[in-house]
Design a binder for these strands. Structure first.
Lengths: 213, 213
DNA sequence: TTTTACACTAACTAGATAGTCAGTTGATTC
DNA sequence: GAATCAACTGACTATCTAGTTAGTGTAAAA
């Protein structure tokens, strides 16, 4: 019995099970559209446990939200950037960002949903800003190296650089339904994905290589 | 009585009044978060009229959604592009897009909400795709002129070009809550807005001017 | 003037939904 | 092996919410 992975009476496992189901529910239906009863049905446990472990619906939503940013950071940290030129390292980061958004629509949707919620819940969490500090430090070092080597000729802040590629990677996933409808295409088709992945890198590199007019 | 702007027993005026209030409600709370009773309270009329004129909540949501794209198109058409170089014309279009998103957070939020809704409602409307056809034709003509004049050295489709600048203009508004929290800044501050507006144009122009490696 | 039809109101209803609670179970401690 | 306590269940409830309906007011047609 104690070797059984799905043994009950293990609070951590129960919490984790609830969180997994809740992530699906919230990202599919939004904060207000999610149904606690539907989440409960999807778990190995009962609705009472959701309230026992997370207090209320908002508490559960907050717990789900608190998990998604650290997950992104952990993936990001796995990147190996040894012995790369500034351009290569930047391309590797953009590739990662592109793939992560493409493969984690749940993440993208949760972020959208939290923005519809005016970011109120995220502001209440002690969201590990180390997430972004790491990546910003890295972008900063790339920019400095590129400028020292006279490869990059533009002054741009790490934050703006980050916004430039992230906005594209995010938007093509977050808005694929409306864009595909309005423009009569399939934004996430594999041919579009391949071309877009190349495009976002080319555009940013072209900018960094170019000089102020 | 009949000269009174807020005269009742005018179906068109009633519909318009409901639509205005509904846009605010839906864009603030989302499709599932919006409350029909709250909309009714905000109008000059009663809840019964919402059902009388729009059938049900989804019908009202659809009517709101159907209004926002044509509004964007009408604004876009007002742009005067006579006697401009390809670069100037493109800059004018990007400026417009940037300002429209910045000044119409309601529009941005409705699009987000519809994507959370998997674009199901938009697909049911006969959304005037002329909206985008016009702008795509214009981008196409800019690209062709720029290439003929040997100013632009890149092959990019009008759609991809459109996606590039729109994604940035959209994202900085749609995600300003979470980004501002995570990066510890105010994305929509006027100094950021001014810099971003310059940046998105510079990046795209730099790309078009550069040549394939 | 009467009729007709559209525009409208206020009170109502059925069902959904977040949240509660009294009691049970099982592992751990003494 | 009894006591303790965290983990858990299932049935319950108050409230909220989309949607309905019976009937009223008004303007224009007949």
């Amino acid at each position: 019995m104690s070797g059984d992975i799905t043994t009950s009476r293990d609070a951590d496992q129960t919490r984790q099970n609830i969180l997994e189901v809740a992530l699906k529910e919230f990202s599919e239906y939004g904060l207000t559209g999610a149904r606690v009863d539907r989440i409960a049905k999807g778990t190995r446990t009962t609705k009472g446990m959701i309230y026992y472990h997370f207090g209320d619906k908002d508490g559960l939503y907050k717990a789900v939200l608190e998990e998604i940013y650290p997950k992104l950071r952990k993936s990001e940290e796995k990147l190996d950037k040894s012995n790369l030129s500034p351009i290569e390292e930047l391309e590797k980061i953009i590739d990662f960002t592109f793939e992560y958004h493409k493969n984690n629509e749940n993440f993208v949707r949760m972020v959208m949903i939290e923005n519809i919620n005016n970011g109120e819940t995220l502001r209440k969490t002690d969201v590990d800003t180390g997430v972004s500090q790491n990546i910003l430090m890295e972008l900063s070092s790339i920019l400095i190296r590129g400028q020292k080597e006279k490869v990059f000729n533009r002054n741009i802040s790490p934050i703006d650089l980050h916004l430039l590629y992230t906005s594209f990677c995010f938007y093509r996933v977050s808005n694929h339904h409306t864009v595909s409808t309005v423009l009569g295409m399939n934004m996430l088709s594999s041919s579009n994905s391949i071309r877009h992945k190349r495009l976002v890198k080319d555009v940013i590199i072209a900018y960094l290589l170019s000089s102020e007019p």
